[in-house]
Structure formats: structure tokens, C-alpha cells
Amino acid sequence: MIFRYLPRSLKWQRKGPESVVFVNGKFYNDTKLATANDFFFTRLHIPGNITNPLGLNVTAVNVNNIPGLNTLGISLALIEFAPNGLNSSHTHSQAIEILVVVEGTMYVGFVTSNSDNRLFTKVLDQGDVFIFPVGLIHFQLNVGKTNAIAFAGLSSQNPGVIIIESAVFGSNPPMNPDVLSKEFQVDKNVINYLQKKFWWDNNN
């Protein structure tokens, strides 16, 4: 692979005496130094911990744990749910998501970014597929009586994730309660309560 075939989104960054290419959060590595381990990952057979408050475990398979994905524009996630487990409202700023249900029954949906904020939802069973457009708020809830499993394919090596409640109420340092109180039109005591809660990170 040579530089002229890399995506237009690349940024040049000076590091020491030589220029390197910065690709969606990662430096471009010399392919001559790659080994088979740069294209390998072996944790998806290990059950994740779904005993947390969300009843959820997400195992990401992206450029952070498979360096060989750099510049390839794809990644994967294994999502495991306890009964009533929730992958809470979040967005991927850099990726479309395609979800495939392997086991269980899920209620999923996304909200459009238009002024009407349309909600698109569907109940998915084993073998069903659903698409979440890039950047839109979406969620997945296990509505079955047993554990559920899904795979998510994402159109970025490093899709990024913003978990809505964590970003708003769990920011560091905390957002000014006056801002949130006016924004959500609730008493400031409600905001103070929400900011003191522990917001579970639903992505590993």
C-alpha cells in the first residue's frame, strides 16, 4: 500500500524529522513491518460480563485491537445482552452500523436528525438485520426472556461512540447545572441528582 491510495481524509502530521500519515485517530504504519498478529483477534469466544446495571457487554473489534484494520474502513462489535439488557442511546459520529441478531429478540430504533425527530423502531428476531445511519442516536433493548447476542458491523476502522446520558450528565468536569436545568426544563435538584449517578460505559 502506498500513500496515494489512502483515503482523502488523511491528515499529515509532523513527528520528529519525518512526516507521518494520521488516519482517523491512528498513525499509518509501514506495511513492511506488519505481522499476522496485526490482523488477528481472539476474544469473541469468551462470554462477556452482563451482570452490570445495563445488562450489557460490548466487545469492540476495531483498529485499537487489530492494527491491520488501519485505513480499511471497517470494524465489528459483539453485543451481549441479559434479559432486559440495554445498549443505551448513543451515536457513532464516523460510521453506519448494520446489526445482525444471532440470538434472542430485540427492540431497536433510531431518531432522525431532521426537525421532526422521527423515531424508526423494529422488533428483531434471530437472523434479522437493521441499519443505523451514521451519526444518528440509536439504541437496542433485549425484550426476550433469555440472553441475546448480536453482531454490529461498522463502516469505519474507528467509529467513535458518544453515549448520550454519559456525555450529558457524566462529563468531566460536570456541565453547569444551570445550563442543563434550562435545557431539560427541570428543577436544578434533578440535574444535581443525575450528575451524581454513576453512568455505566456500554462500550469496551
Rank of each mutant, 00 (worst) to 15 (best):
L72A: 10
A150R: 03
I149T: 11
N158I: 04
D30F: 07
I131Q: 07
F41E: 04
K188N: 12
L76M: 10
G109A: 10
K26N: 15
A77M: 06
A148G: 15
N57P: 06
L69N: 02
L154S: 02
E18Y: 07
W12D: 03
T42N: 14
D38A: 09
Q185H: 10
L124A: 07
N203Q: 02
A34K: 06
L44M: 06
N117I: 00
A95S: 11
E18F: 13
S155N: 10
G104H: 02
Q126S: 13
T42F: 01
F169H: 02
R43K: 13
I50H: 11
A77Y: 04
V63K: 05
L194R: 10
F110V: 08
D187P: 12
D201Y: 12
N62F: 03
V186W: 00
L86F: 08
V134E: 02
P174V: 00
G68R: 03
S181L: 02
L54S: 07
G135E: 03
S171L: 06
S88W: 09
K188D: 05
P53H: 06
A82P: 01
P174S: 10
N62T: 05
G153C: 14
N70P: 12
V58L: 07
I46F: 00
A60R: 01
V20P: 04
L86P: 02
L56I: 14
I163Y: 05
K145W: 00
I98L: 15
A60D: 02
G170P: 07
L99A: 03
N70D: 12
E165F: 04
K26Q: 14
N70G: 12
N84L: 12
N176D: 15
L136H: 11
N29W: 09
A95K: 03
G170S: 09
A95T: 07
K32W: 01
P159Y: 06
Q94T: 02
F81Y: 05
W199G: 11
W199Q: 10
G25D: 07
L180C: 06
N87V: 03
Q94Y: 08
G170Y: 01
K122R: 15
T71A: 05
N87I: 01
T31V: 15
L141Y: 09
